[in-house]
Design a protein around this nucleic acid. Structure first.
Length: 109
RNA sequence: UGAGCGGACUGCGCGGUCGCGGCGCAAAGCAAUUUGCGAUGAGGAAAGUCCGGGCAUCACAGGGCAGGGCGCCUGAUAACGUCAGGUGAAGGCGACUUCAAGACCAGUGCAACAGAAAUAGACCGCUCUUCGGGAACAGGCAUUGCCCCCGGGGAGUAAGGGUGGAAAGGGGAGGUAAGAGCUCACCGACGGCGUGGUAACAUGCCGUGCCAUGUAAACUCCGUCCGAUGCAAGUUUGGGGCUUCCGCACAUGGGCUGCCCGUCCGCGGAAGUCUGUGAAUAACGCUCGAGCCCCGCGGCGACGCGUGGGCCUAGAUAAAUGAUCGCGCUCGACAGAACCCGGCUUACAGGUCCGCUCAGAUG
RNA sequence: GCAGAGAUGUCUGAGAGGCUUAAGGAGCGCGAUUGGAAAUCGCGUGACGGUGGUGAAUCGUCCGGAGGUUCGAAUCCUCUUCUCUGCG
């Protein structure tokens, strides 16, 4: 399933308020059921300068894309602050959360 | 060979698979859009936002005050606080480097502490003179006195004095009671004239014994420049228009710049009606431009000129460059466009090239 | 993105060229008061480094950091780091 980018500030705050939060070692995964499949990453100024922040965003997007397919949700990815960020760790944690929350199963069934 | 100085350039590369941004072409669809193919996609600093412009709005961009920037000279430029060439000063054996480098005899302020004294003077000292006292030491004139010693007064002096950032040009010779630009030569300073240079300035001669501290990144003066606000500027579609009524205001209000002159004339609310379904939104501004590369000509150079040639090289808007595999090497620093240019400043692993200096060795 | 403000002991917060004032308040420590406490009153109290039976004491450096101007800088100027505020 293709995931579009979640752009509206109102929707992001709605997901943050009403969505379910799951935590892993490297990131927090916030989601709520939705008609459209959409995703956003949250990387504020505390993560470093712009080069560092862009790097985190790329890694998170690619890790999410490379993970197992899931049904339509509004998803927010929030990394934990660390010295180094790696693609492998992000991907492993996202896979783990998807499996644990059974998001891979078809909700409509 | 070693040490060093200046300048220019570069900023991991190649290939496969999957993925991202906008663009072009083709196909499907009423349309939103989807699919396929193709080329393309961060920097030398994109950074800090420290200057200068373009552009846009305010009012037609006007006058004055206030405020702010700059400050050796000449040039370059759209402009600059930038750059180039030169002058002066300081540092270095040298190549070369550094410098906010106008004016404190227009005025005002400040100069703590120390020191006798801080922009002005006489505390000590030195010299002459005069008054009083002393005979204890050494020596002389030859004797109730003097030189001498102690204390006080008067006059001269600015050589010397543990200060200080700064003490009335410097050190030397003559001169003198002691001294002093008092006199002399040299150096410095100031003034005049000449010469060279567009100029800053340099230099030669003559004269003046020398009217005199520092600070303007203190106020200030002189010269010169600046209207303000910044693309979240602003424009268009549009929830906005039209009609009616009500409230504020006729300059005593509001906007334009902090103030004055000057100048412009609206602002807010309610009801009805038309239309609309995204509203911190959508489109434009938004990238072809003081553009980049090469060649020729002019200039020491910054740079300029050329109907000489070639190129099109990001335009996103929660904001695009990643993942993985293989190969190579010296294992990769600082760091991500946000309206666009010209600079400055700051950060930075390394690597390459050119020119030059000093020391040593050899020929 | 654009525009602006600030940084001073543990905290707060004056000082805006002159001997070292780093004022003052809070907090903390000690003492007085009390049967005991609170409140009140008095005294003390910054960091780092050096010398010191390492005890009393004493000297030097420090006003976010680095340079410069000045005889002299917390104060003036430049660069830099961090924090905060406003702007459709």
């Amino acid at each position: 399933m293709e995931y579009a980018r979640l752009k509206k500030a109102k929707k992001i705050t709605a997901v943050l308020r009403g969505g379910k939060r799951v935590y892993a070692d490297t990131l927090a995964f916030v989601y709520s059921p939705s008609k459209e499949a959409e995703m956003a990453v949250c990387v504020g100024k505390k993560y470093g300068k712009s080069v560092q922040r862009n790097r985190i965003k790329r890694l998170l997007r690619e890790a999410f894309r490379a993970s197992r397919q899931i049904g339509p949700y509004s998803v927010l990815l929030i990394p934990k602050k660390a010295e180094d960020y790696s693609f492998a760790a992000f991907k492993r944690d996202i896979e783990k959360i998807i499996g644990k929350e059974k998001l891979g199963e078809d909700r409509t069934a």
